[in-house]
Design a binder for these strands. Structure first.
Length: 291
DNA sequence: CGGGGCTCCTGTGCGC
DNA sequence: TGCGCACAGGAGCCCC
């Protein structure tokens, strides 16, 4: 399941293999893959033809390629999406959804492959005057914590304004983008915060520490080349990502906490799971601050 | 309007 | 062996 570090690896691959090329034609093999392109698959392929691809961008888990300066090809990998650079002769993948060919002699094409079809591609106008060539749908998504423009004070203020719990807030892309279930659990474990801690109890120092841990867990994964234990994840060149056993909480039910040895617990939560150490990550007692 | 829950989608793995 | 179900989960959408 690609999260921010994995998506960044894909962005770097796109930058290397696709930026500067001109689209010859595109082919949509599954309409669901372009469902966020509201004008439909035919309009999607029509508008892509002839487009010059600009520098690959990313915010959180969204990727985009600026086209001719005024529009952008936006992509989200969802659960199982892959962007592959393949020779024309490579057999179609079972879950090939979109194929983009280029007007050059390099012999390769860009393929969007997605088993579960939670991801997709779409074309959008660019926010006027945006130096990032930000596609319009991303205008109201918060910067991710690895961006220069990420504003920790604004994040803290937004966190305190929300009446919810900390993990919900971390997964809300309008407050902070790029944090998924895995890195949320990892950053909360590093910060010794329970996933159901009310955001109202977040002090500035706690927010600062949490943001630091989010950055660290993402940077560690990025340094490892983009990590994933999901065999579905393949980077833009088709190489499998690898997972280097650096997770402390996620997926470690009943295994000892690396800080205190207590068994890591798994709790069903929002149709998924939360992993935490019941000793290091105590839920706050109402009316009493455990720190 | 904000919080929270539901749904989409397919393949894998496990228990009966 | 085969069936049914839990699980993986980002984010759009809907309802109160």
């Amino acid at each position: 399941m690609p999260e921010l570090p994995e998506v960044e690896v894909v962005r770097i691959g796109l930058e290397r293999w696709v930026t500067g090329r001109t689209v010859a034609d595109a082919e949509v093999l599954h309409p669901r893959a372009v469902r966020r392109h509201l004008a439909g698959a035919a309009d999607f392929t029509d508008r892509l033809a002839g487009a010059l691809i600009g520098p690959a961008r990313r915010r959180g888990k969204y990727l985009w390629l600026p086209l001719n300066g005024t529009t952008a090809l936006l992509g989200h990998l969802g659960m199982s999406g892959q962007l592959l650079i393949q020779p024309h002769a490579a057999p179609d993948e079972t879950h090939l959804r979109v194929r983009i060919r280029f007007d050059d002699e390099l012999g390769t094409e860009l393929r969007f492959v997605d088993q579960r079809t939670f991801g997709g591609l779409s074309l959008h106008d660019v926010v006027p005057g945006s130096p990032l060539a930000l596609p319009v749908p991303l205008a109201h998504i918060a910067p991710d914590p690895l961006e220069d423009v990420f504003d920790e004070e604004a994040f803290h203020t937004a966190l305190r304004r929300r009446r919810t719990t900390i993990k919900r807030a971390l997964l809300d892309q309008s407050l902070i983008s790029g944090v998924g279930n895995i890195y949320a659990d990892e950053a909360l474990w590093r910060s010794r915060l329970h996933y159901e801690r009310p955001t109202a109890t977040m002090t500035r120092p706690r927010t600062a520490e949490l943001v630091t841990h989010i950055r660290e867990v993402m940077s560690d994964a990025l340094a490892a080349g983009g990590t994933s234990f999901d065999s579905l994840y393949v980077n833009v060149n088709g190489e499998s990502g690898y997972f280097d056993r650096s997770l402390d909480a996620y997926g470690r039910e009943d295994e000892p906490c690396r800080r205190c040895g207590t068994g890591i617990r798994r709790r069903p939560w929002m149709n998924r799971s939360s992993y935490f150490c019941p000793r290091c990550q105590r839920p706050p007692v109402p009316g009493r601050d455990p720190r």
